[in-house]
């Protein structure tokens, strides 16, 4: 616990009167890939948005490298080295592909990622670099969204449903690129509905059910029956 880089302690989240998260505890160790799985509406996206600062919280609910960041704004969280690949990609339509990537790095944090390295990872983006981001296919847009987050040279990247709505061949392509991304000592939290995919790339897994953590374990050893129970609550 002491060496955790990120820890959530009794994290709650509300949308008006609706409570989406109930006292979620979660830890992420440096260099680790943590998968978060759960059914629709379990609170996975809400949890990532809370960490990224899009939903405000009590300061002590989220601890990052010793800082209490629960109450910080998203731009302050970004400056501390946390990047989010949001669900639905959410590129900037009036920016070109390259501008979308450049703006990801506009805080100027030092690190291995540059425009060139993103283009090496996803060569198709270099061909399309001057196009409007909205003219790309869904898979290419997802590459831009991932590249945009990497351009920030974050210490932690949060990926929300990066395979959602994409063709299987594209999903495979993106997941094949993933080891090259997290191999740099980057820490990652991956939210995914595809349980097999999530387990294959992660070391540890959490399952959320109706806003509560229903399971925590090692991705390779956790029994499938436990996952089924934690996922569907049967």
């Amino acid at each position: 616990m002491a060496d955790a880089i990120l820890s959530l302690q009794a994290l709650n989240a509300h949308y008006g009167d609706f409570q989406a998260l109930y006292g979620v505890n979660l830890t992420v160790n440096p260099g680790e890939v943590v998968a978060v799985i759960g059914a629709n509406g379990a609170g996975k996206t809400t949890m990532l948005r809370s960490i990224a600062g899009l939903l405000r919280n009590a300061p002590e609910a989220i601890r990052w490298k010793g800082h209490l960041i629960g109450a910080l704004r998203a731009d302050q969280v970004a400056a501390l080295g946390i990047a989010l690949v949001p669900e639905g990609r959410l590129l900037f339509p009036s920016l070109s592909v390259e501008e979308n990537l450049v703006i990801g790095g506009q805080l100027g944090r030092k690190g291995p990622w540059s425009l060139q390295r993103v283009y090496d990872l996803f060569p198709i983006l270099k061909e399309r670099r001057l196009q409007q981001s909205t003219s790309l296919s869904g898979g290419q847009q997802q590459m831009v969204a991932i590249g945009r987050a990497l351009m920030a040279n974050p210490d932690l990247v949060l990926m929300d449903e990066i395979s959602l709505g994409l063709a299987p061949v594209i999903i495979r392509q993106i997941y094949e690129a993933l080891p090259g991304i997290v191999g740099e000592g980057l820490t990652a939290v991956i939210v995914e509905q595809d349980i097999a995919k999530a387990l294959s790339v992660s070391q540890r897994v959490y399952c959320l059910q109706e806003g509560r953590v229903s399971l925590e374990g090692q991705s390779q050893t956790v029994p499938r029956d436990d996952i089924t129970r934690a996922y569907f609550g049967v």
Partner: peptide, 9 residues
């Protein structure tokens, strides 16, 4: 909100 994620206040 996404612009905010890029570190823009």
């Amino acid at each position: 909100d996404v612009a905010q994620l890029m570190g823009l206040n």
